[in-house]
Each structure stands twice: as structure tokens, then as C-alpha cells.
Design a protein around this nucleic acid. Structure first.
Lengths: 226, 226
DNA sequence: TATTGTGAAAGGGTTCACAGCG
DNA sequence: CGCTGTGAACCCTTTCACAATA
């Protein structure tokens, strides 16, 4: 089970979501083809991704929806809860704190920190905004495992360093800047600026007219990206 | 200039940002090594990425900061402004409307739409929230080129279809669902659920102890991901 | 017959290593 | 001598194609 690529994991997330939907609709079994349907994934890719973790399907029949969902749930680490500290009580930080999906997926925000003395002491929903200077103490006493960086870019690396020192094992970064963390800390970045720029790039360099055929056109003229 | 990979474009965004910083600090020239410094990129990668668009450097010297920044600006399509419509005036939509970086990068929000009759007619900052039913008309009259999907997942595909029909050429999707769009429409997705799950996966499957050496360890023990 | 699981082949992206040039 | 630009090697990911099996 070594050498699982980042893209495989991201696809597992999608399979998991599809399974939730199909189960809600009462579906019992599902084929790799149907699991691949949304998202420009091939059935072979689905099978390869899953087979990296075991044999969950039955030849000729497909996969049992409930069973596969439970397996993926465990594989993705969603069969437990994660304790999260959000640093930066600005727009992104507060948006996250009120984002329901966060808790629903198993992530509990147990601290919300900021540097601004005017923000410290205020409430944001049910959360009290505390002084980021107390990060180390708070992280230790509340057993924080994941840190969210929602600060301006100039402060991001400093905050990441503090989170690492405080012992978090994973960081989700929303600041538009590449962060450097020790190898034993997992890092994921959501960079709006990069998304916008890559979108602008695609529009500027779009093949205009009925030019060059694109890859193998998957059913109809529809093809997902990203 | 054909066959530029998505990952190359994303790195160009980072080079661009680094150049902005270096220029602000008064730097005149920069080497591929320094340009690669942040973010686990190799100097060779930087040179390959840039050389796909031209020869911007000088052997023995490096790249001129101001010149390369202008070139990247044009390559990324940031030397013009883009007209954006945001669909969904919920948390994400409103957070975006007040995000300053948006306008600074050249993206102007020219419409903000929702289905909720109670939201329609309200103001969000300077923006008037309008009826999503009027999307086609609004998109046409304001010449909207990019649509942002900031709705609940159940409505996302429907909204994307409407945006495509309305003639947008690019879509930025924040709903946790894979969307399908025609090949001529560029799509980028920011999926919080996927990020969180891939982070949880990494934590659950972290090699504990001093196990398996990771790739070639880049200077020190630091290595960025994502 | 339908569909999985998986080696083998193909395809793409990254790194190497060095020629070319200032 | 330093650093870019780039063909070739390398490596990783995806797709193919088919044996295995319900």
C-alpha cells in the first residue's frame, strides 16, 4: 500500500462522495464504469485506484455500495474526528468556521486565533477568538492535529512554523504563497490566485475556432477538467 | 507553444508572485535557482517551464526581473481585465465578493446572482444581488466571460449548464462536486472536501517513526507539498 | 454475459547533463 | 566561469487488454 499518488487520493474523495449519493438513492451495487461517470475518469482508473487498497468488488457484479463506502471512509481517515485550529479570523477563517461541511466530514474546529487585539476576545459563532501568541499552549492542551493558515501571505510562513512547533501534523494553507514545512508535516494549499490565473491562462490560450481535436472525446462533447 | 501542462501553468503563477516580491525588494536579476527556491521546484524545472514560451534569460546572468514579470503577466492573461459573474450569494460567494485580491489580479465581479427571493434585491458590499433566472440576459448585456459556481452541490451542475448556455468561457467551481462542461469551456475546481480528505489520508497513512527515506531530500529536512 | 483485477504498454512530466553563450 | 536552454533518460501515471470469475 505504498506509493499512493496524490491524484489517486483526490479521486478516492470523489468516489466516496458518489457512493454517498448512490447509497442515499438506495443503490446496492455500482460498477467501475458508473463510479467513473462524473469527472472524466475511466473505469480502468477507478479499478486501479481501488485495487491499490484491496479487492473490494465482485467480478461480473461490481462493488457493493455500502461496503465500498465504509472501506473508503476508513482509507480516507474519516472514521474518526480531527481537531483543527484556525489561524486568522479574517474572511477565510470565519467563512470556514461557519462552514457546515467541515464538521460533517469529521473536522472539529477547537480554536480560532488572530493577532489583532480588536478581534481577540470577540466571538465568531460559538468560537472565542484567542491570541495567536497562545498558539503553542492552546494546541497542546486541546490536542490540535491540523492547523489552518488563513492569514495574509506575509504572515503565512511564520504561522506555519509556529503550527509545526506546536506539534500539528497537517496544515491546510489558504494564503497565496508556497509554504515550507518539515517532511513529516502534511501540507495542502488552496490558492485562489493560482486558480484564477490558470483560468485566465486557459481563456487566453484557448484554441479558437473548430481547431485541433482534443484527446479522445468522451461521450458527447462534454469533458471535465480539474 | 502547444501542450502546456496544467502543472506548468500553476508554477508560472508562483514564479509570477515571486517576481512581484523580488521586484518590490528592488532585485534586478534572478537565477532559475533562486526562482525555484520556494516550493520544492528544481532549477531545471523552472527553465523548462519558461522555455516553453520563449528565451527570457541570459546565459551566465539569469533573468531580468521586471522583464520576466511582464512576460509572465501577458502569458497568464493578467494584462487585461476579466468580467466575472458569481452565482450563489452564500458564504463563499460573499467572501469572494469582498476578496480584494480578486480585483487586484484583474478580475471584476460584474454580477452576483442567487435563487433565494429573500436574498435577491439585497446588497452585498457594492453589489446588488440579482435573480439567477436573469442570468442569460445579464451575462449577455454585461459581457460576462467567467462564472463562479458558489452554490450547494445539488444545484452546481444546473448552474454550470446555465453559465455555459449564457456563453461564459471559463468556470471556477467551489461546489464539492465534479462538473461536466463542453470542451471549449475551461473549468477549475476548488473543493474543500477533497483537500480535507486528502489531508486526513496523509495523516492516517503517515510513515511513523524514522521509516522509509523520501525521495531526494532537498536541502535540510524541509520539503513542500501541494 | 458482465465486470473486476492486473500485468504490460503507452503516455506525460520531471530530472539529468551538457552544449551554448554571455 | 556562471547560468540558461534543451535533447535524452528516467520515472510515474494512465490506459489497454485480457484472464479470472460471479
Amino acid at each position: 500500500m505504498t506509493g499512493i499518488s496524490e491524484s489517486t487520493v483526490r479521486r478516492l474523495s470523489h468516489y466516496y462522495r458518489t457512493l454517498e449519493e448512490v447509497e442515499a438513492e438506495g443503490g446496492r451495487t455500482i460498477s467501475s464504469r458508473r463510479l467513473a461517470e462524473r469527472g472524466g475518469i475511466t473505469p480502468a482508473q477507478v479499478r486501479k485506484d481501488l485495487s491499490a487498497f484491496g479487492s473490494f468488488g465482485r467480478r461480473g457484479l461490481g462493488y457493493n455500495v455500502g461496503y465500498l463506502r465504509q472501506e473508503l471512509r476508513a482509507i480516507l481517515g474519516l472514521d474518526r474526528r480531527w481537531r483543527v485550529a484556525v489561524v486568522g479570523a479574517g474572511r477565510v477563517g470565519t467563512a470556514l468556521s461557519s462552514y457546515r461541511g467541515f464538521g460533517r466530514q469529521g473536522f472539529d474546529i477547537v480554536a480560532m486565533l488572530d493577532v489583532d487585539p480588536r478581534r481577540i476576545g470577540q466571538r465568531e459563532g460559538a468560537m472565542l477568538i484567542e491570541d495567536v501568541a497562545r498558539l503553542a499552549a492552546i494546541a497542546a492542551e486541546r490536542d490540535v492535529e491540523i492547523g489552518v493558515v488563513a492569514t495574509p501571505p506575509a504572515a503565512a510562513q511564520e504561522v506555519a512554523d509556529a503550527l509545526v512547533t506546536a506539534g500539528v501534523r497537517g496544515i491546510l494553507n489558504f494564503a497565496p504563497r508556497k509554504l515550507t514545512v518539515p517532511v513529516h508535516v502534511a501540507l495542502r494549499t488552496v490558492d485562489m490566485a493560482v486558480e484564477l490565473e490558470s483560468l485566465a491562462f486557459a481563456l487566453v490560450h484557448a484554441r479558437t475556432g473548430r481547431g485541433t481535436a482534443r484527446r479522445r472525446s468522451r461521450r458527447g462533447a462534454a469533458s471535465p477538467t480539474a
